[in-house]
Design a protein around this nucleic acid. Structure first.
Lengths: 137, 137
DNA sequence: AATTGTAGTGCAACGGAAGTGCATTTATTA
DNA sequence: TAATAAATGCACTTCCGTTGCACTACAATT
């Protein structure tokens, strides 16, 4: 619990009760989390608070946003020391067409692409879709 | 004009006036098109018609859908003979953070990724974001 | 040519998700 | 303790995708 507080403080996020709970919830989950998920998990809290908490987390580098193609924004905790902005830290994500869950494959970085003349890449998003480990066995 | 009719018929899409117009519109555009774009271009037509036209096109392999991370679904014509379902035909897309346009880089296929044990990939989506050719010069 | 059926189109309305403005509460610090 | 800033909650908006139902145009069949 103390570690969470510390982690948040380190990143310039004031560790309020709500934020600690949300962080904890995300830490315990192995998959990417949508706002709706948090909403369901914390029925008492207001959606706006949760929404803004996620935005704050994202801005401060506590979580990174994931666009898995479902049209719903999802989030996952950043690894300690990760620098999501930097290209070399861009890992890929796997979305399961069966259970509809999305996971980070932090070991797998996005390979370098040779772009045509004139194009400058700043960011990249790679999502593989298929059947995940849990569903394929 | 006749070519468009033929192309549609080949793909099992009845070439109605509306559909031909939409196809033509997309053929003349160099960038991926959102429903809203078509809506603006054909103010007289109903959104539903345009929506369903795109869905039909997609289903019949006339266009492919692009998720460029803006949260808006976009579409682009398939190349003749392309098989969007097949993995080897998956090209990547480039989204310009400046002009907000998205283009197909059909020459650039998505590289193969070695997934961890248990994961089976069926599909992939790779979007590079940055500054496009037009905006960088 | 008239009839029947199917595919396409238009209108209206719904629903999910992201986002904003403002009032209120809680925490910080002077 | 007063003054200030940050966090939370409520209400409401907007955008986009989507669906149900009625109507129309087209094609096939008798």
């Amino acid at each position: 619990m103390k570690e969470i507080e510390q982690r948040l403080t380190e990143n310039g996020v004031r560790p309020t009760a709500m934020r600690i709970l949300i962080y904890k919830y995300m830490a315990e989950s192995e998959v990417a989390i949508a706002l709706t998920d948090i909403e369901n998990a914390f029925a008492k809290a207001d959606r706006t608070t949760l929404f803004r908490t996620l935005k704050t987390f994202e801005q401060k580098g506590v979580v990174h946003q994931i666009d898995d193609g479902t049209g719903v924004q999802k989030y996952a905790l950043c690894e300690t020391g990760c620098n999501c902005e930097l290209e070399q830290d861009l890992h890929l994500h796997f979305h399961c067409n069966n259970c509809n869950e999305t996971v980070c494959l932090t070991e797998h970085k996005i390979p370098n692409i040779n772009l045509p003349e004139g194009y400058v890449a700043e960011d990249a998003n790679l999502v593989l879709k298929g059947i995940c480990e849990k569903c394929s066995t």
